[in-house]
Nucleic acid binder design. Structure first.
Lengths: 170, 170
DNA sequence: CCTAGATCGTCAGTATACTGTCAATCAACA
DNA sequence: TGTTGATTGACAGTATACTGACGATCTAGG
């Protein structure tokens, strides 16, 4: 065994670091999602986008990016792929020529309906190794931490603010 | 307000889903890391690779990918970038012409030494919004979950197995 | 020795994820 | 009204992250 490390850091420090655990858990979560949903050929992000468009029909890309905490630049290609699969359609906004409104197509609504059980299986599997009480504790702490750290990563609008000018209350 | 959703799913279900929280937390963690370490121009993955090569000098790319739970395909470009920055060097293994051994250069060791305070600041900031007891609880649960879910994502070797044939015990 | 299977690094292809930039468009104000 | 500033979608560029495939190489068995 090495007698003394040259630097006061070793792999143990990496394995126990929050950043490492968050990255690893994300890898595992995506892997489980893809495995459960491989029959549908939808990624986690594409799924989240479909749900958001379903929940907020006529949303535009910028607001969608805020709702699912997703970078606007990346979202363009996600939308393109969903459109290529004919799960969504884009219509120009009559009162603002910059904006294109997003709507679920019939087949988009259909695949969303079909994929939900698989997604729920995946979400369940992610936490399965923990005892039920621990699952709850972990999700509670993580939700809290994400909420309190929300501004730390570049999301131009908070989800609630993003929806202010949308259909609710018009 | 919408009287009744067409599908039994809404954004609340996404926001509370483990997969969404894991992805969001990973985004935040990377963002904080990059902010604290921007003076060094090193990504979290590049940092992890440097630490692993420091801890296991002469490791090869396949074993490195297992040690930091990193896909072998992606690792190629990471190694290339670290080599371009002259932080590591690759030497052909004398007894196996397929393998290239990885070593830290002097400037690689130097930047590792210099970046550690920034990395520790970043790791601290990720958990800062939580109470100390909650930080510990979250890390404990997450470490447990990652360990128990380890096989779920494609990592060809477990870290311990990967190091079996390395320098330890020679 | 020689072939079958395994392993190594690499590559192509796809999909996030970020920064920064741009033209088109809109809103607000002098 | 005309100009400034902000917003929108799009793009280029970089960096993970995965699947699947490939030639080169090593190892084991006959």
């Amino acid at each position: 065994m090495p007698s003394k490390p040259l630097l006061p850091i070793a792999m143990d420090a990496v394995y126990a670091a929050p950043g490492y655990l968050f990255r690893r858990m994300q890898q595992i979560a995506v892997s489980i999602f893809m495995e459960e949903c491989k029959a549908f050929d939808l990624t986690p992000v594409q799924y989240a986008a479909l749900v958001a468009i379903h929940t907020h029909p006529g949303i535009d890309a910028t607001r969608l990016s805020a709702v699912i905490a997703f970078d606007r630049s990346t979202l363009g290609s996600v939308i393109e792929r969903l459109q290529a699969k004919a799960y969504i359609e884009r219509k120009p906004a009559p009162e603002d020529k910059r904006i294109k409104l997003l709507y679920l197509t019939k087949s988009g609504a259909a695949i969303l309906r079909e994929i939900i059980p698989a997604v729920e299986r995946a979400q369940g599997r992610m936490l399965e190794p923990l005892k039920p009480a621990d699952r709850k504790a972990l999700m509670g702490l993580l939700a809290q931490l994400v909420d309190l750290n929300n501004e730390a990563s570049r999301v131009p609008l908070r989800a609630e603010d993003a929806l202010e000018h949308l259909g609710k209350g018009g």
